[in-house]
Design a protein around this nucleic acid. Sequence first.
DNA 1: ACCGACTGTAACCTCAAAGGTTACAGTCGT
DNA 2: ACGACTGTAACCTTTGAGGTTACAGTCGGT
Lengths: 95, 95
Amino acid sequence: MKPMHNPPHPGEILRELCFEPLGLTVTEAAAALGVSRKTLSAILNGRAGITAEMALRLGKAFDTTPESWLHHQIQHDLWVVRRSKKKLQVRKLAA
Amino acid sequence: MKPMHNPPHPGEILRELCFEPLGLTVTEAAAALGVSRKTLSAILNGRAGITAEMALRLGKAFDTTPESWLHHQIQHDLWVVRRSKKKLQVRKLAA
DNA sequence: ACCGACTGTAACCTCAAAGGTTACAGTCGT
DNA sequence: ACGACTGTAACCTTTGAGGTTACAGTCGGT
């Protein structure tokens, strides 16, 4: 199994795949998405995650699937928990 | 693409695919997973969602991919927001 | 050099969800 | 009747999203 280097947080992907190509500003995009500038900024800078509602907003605005944004999010979430040395004490129940 | 009727909450899937086949009790499974009985009960009865950490626990215990549990979760989350009537005010930014 | 637009972010608030412990009532098999 | 299992209520803590307001910094255009 591969090393799985830092899966980028979804905000990074958002910036590279949507904002830069379209030359969007945070201010105008926040208004279009119907959220505050702070909220969008937090996502773009990796200080907040993508919620189901936000995924739907992104899907509408950029004509993408909400699932794709949430998929990036869970990959990042899993990576965060895995690298947080806290060993999960789990006993096998099957297989 | 069909309306996508109630995607079951992940707890329902957990119960049908893991608990019933193995004849597991909530009490013993909670202990094996390293969480409280309350926490597992809440998930099994759809009163709590699957977090990244819980997905990792389930993956270890049942030898499944954590991603699959989180995938079920986001499908359910999206369904909940979609059926919540609250119209998201979003302006298209692309496509 | 100044001004306006954009940006990050801090401070402050509310709301909600996860998870823990304890305790209680109900069900079910022996 | 008793013990095991279950759902769940009450109560607490922590965390994260999201909002508003305000401030300081950057940058382009005039």
